[in-house]
Structure formats: structure tokens, C-alpha cells
Design a protein around this nucleic acid. Structure first.
Lengths: 177, 177
DNA sequence: GTCTATACTACGATAGAC
DNA sequence: GTCTATCGTAGTATAGAC
């Protein structure tokens, strides 16, 4: 194949995101990621011991980026933080396909990965702070945001722009308070 | 194998539900359903031309049963219909694993199946009526119900009883109105 | 660090016997 | 209507060459 990367590890994570955005978690595979990068199907195993650990690295990155997106959205809307965060969640997940079903995927439960643990904890902590430490409000807001994201990814809102859906999700989140 | 069924077709649909409830759509396969019923992996293909058509029959059954569950819940709570329906959605989906991600699965889009089409249309019509033909309210309520269901199936509420989660989902749905 | 090649598993689907 | 047997495909993962 004769293709060399400066940093295949990082490229694998990037390509994983592309695959998730295009086809979702159900179609994610190490082989498909390798194909996308035009490396052999064995190459990824030099950087990740197995499929679950690659997915774990994706989860950690998604948790980090999602948290950043939410924090930025709150900073832009200080009076409407939680709703803005819900909107940011929808925008991020619709764009990347990497929502809580990836970040907290059941197949990752027994994968020990300190980086992922740190990023997911930081994400949860931030979300809890945004909810004023109201766990019930947090879960309801997360349900709305995840629900809207899923409806988009499932193909329910084919003619609606992402901006519209983000707005409606934020409206729904606001109504919960 | 030497095992004979009176009605393998119906048994396949039932076993598919068991599989969905235990392992979710991602682990669903014709082979696994056949194993569960102790018939050969070829037997299902006498009753369904392919995997998608079996899943389509499951989708039709789920749409029918879910609609019935929602209608019954509304009848028990005439003053609080939409929230009760949202609670019934969560209860049904948590129990069966067959929510909108199964009923409206993308892999079924090009499967022609009049039965499924009728059942999914009836389900959507009923839900729209419950929302007073307010499409925005319907989508928000569905997002909440689907969101809570997903959080349960994803393992977020491990120590909470289903009844509790159903109540909280109904509370959240009520807040949207 | 990447390749080629391969073993193993699982699934979808079909052919032909009974 | 179900079986056994089989083919094709795809994915996970490993061994060994370079």
C-alpha cells in the first residue's frame, strides 16, 4: 500500500469521526477506518489494541469537544445557559454523530482508559453545573437534546435546517425549567 | 435439528422482540433469531425474503402495540393525555427495545410492506391527535420520550425503577405544554 | 510502523434433499 | 416447511516480512 502517516493514531481518530458522521456507530469498524485512510487493516492495531480502545479514544475526544462546544454556547448566552447548551449538544451530535450513545457506549464500560474517564467526568461535571446541580433537570435536558439529535439522525427532519432544529431543541429545553 | 413449529413466522417475530429487548438492534440478526428458536439459519427465509422484511414485520408489530399502549394510557389519564402517552412510550420502549429507532429504522425505508406502512401511519396519526395537531409539540414530546428511553437503555438510570423513570419522563413532557 | 497474508468468526442468503 | 450444506462477504485480530 505504501502510504505513510506522520501520525496515524490521530488520523485514525479523525477518520473514525468521519465514519460516524456519515454512517453512524452501527457501521463503524476498524476495517472501514483503515480503508478510509488507505492503510492496511492491520495498521490500526499498532496504535490501538482492539476496536474498543479506538472507540474509547473517539469517545474521549467527543466528550472533550462536546464540552467545549457547550461551554462556548453558554458564554455566548449567559442568561440562557442550559438551553444554549442543549442547542450546542444537538448541533455537535448532528454534525458528528458522536453523542452520548457513542461517548457512553455500553461496549466501552469495561475498557480501562484514563483519558476517556477524565473527559467524560469533566463533561458530566460541566453539565451538572449548568443545571445548577439539579440532577432531574439535567436528565430531562439531556433527554430533550439527545431526543432531538436522534430524530435528526433517524431522518425525521429531512427538510429542516440544522439551525431550526437547534432552535427548537433549545426552546424545548427552556420549557423544562 | 428436528424441531417443528405450528407457526414459525409468528415465533420469529416474538423471538426478534426478545432479542431486541436483551441486546438491542445492533445485535439483531436473522441467525441469532433462528438460534433462539432452535431452527436452522435457513428456516426464517421460508417466511421472510430477507432480514429487512423480518425487521419490517417487527416494526409493524411494535408500531401497533406501542399505539395501543399509548391509547390505553391516555384513556386512564384523560386530563393528562400527552404526558401519559409519553410515559407509555418510555415504558414500552424500555421493556421491548423497540422504539422509533426500530419502528422507523433507516434500513426499512426502501422495504415495501403495506402492513408496516399502515401501522406506522396509524401510530403517527394517533400521536398527532394527542398533540392537538401541534407538530412542534409532538416532536418535542417524542424527543423527551425517546431521550428518556435511550438514557435507560444506555444504562444511565441503573438504580432507578422503570416506574420512576416513566413518571419523570411524563413530568418533563407535561412541562413542554 | 506498515505491509502481506492468513486464521477465525459471524452473518446473509441460496441449493437441494427429505 | 424444515433440514444440511455451502458460498460469498465482512470484520477482528495475529504472525511474520520488510
Amino acid at each position: 500500500m505504501g502510504y505513510h502517516h506522520g501520525d496515524l493514531r490521530a488520523a485514525l481518530i479523525r477518520a473514525s469521526f468521519e465514519l460516524l458522521a456519515e454512517s453512524g456507530l452501527s457501521r463503524f469498524s476498524v476495517a472501514a477506518v483503515a480503508r478510509r485512510l488507505k492503510v492496511s487493516s492491520a495498521a490500526p492495531y499498532r496504535h490501538f489494541p482492539d476496536r474498543a480502545h479506538l472507540l474509547s479514544a473517539v469517545s474521549a475526544t467527543a466528550a472533550h469537544d462536546l464540552r467545549e462546544a457547550m461551554v462556548a454556547a453558554v458564554a455566548r448566552n449567559p442568561d440562557d445557559g442550559l438551553a444554549a447548551a442543549a442547542g450546542a449538544y444537538v448541533r455537535y451530535v448532528v454534525g458528528t454523530g458522536a453523542g452520548i450513545h457513542v461517548i457512553f457506549a455500553a461496549e466501552l464500560y469495561e475498557v480501562a482508559d484514563d483519558c476517556r474517564r477524565d473527559q467524560t467526568r469533566a463533561l458530566m461535571t460541566t453539565m451538572l453545573e449548568l443545571s445548577g446541580s439539579d440532577v432531574r433537570l439535567l436528565e430531562a435536558t439531556l433527554a430533550v437534546a439527545h431526543g432531538y439529535s436522534s430524530l435528526v439522525l433517524e431522518g425525521f427532519f429531512t427538510k429542516d435546517s440544522v439551525d431550526d432544529v437547534v432552535r427548537r431543541a433549545a426552546d424545548a429545553a427552556r420549557a423544562l425549567q
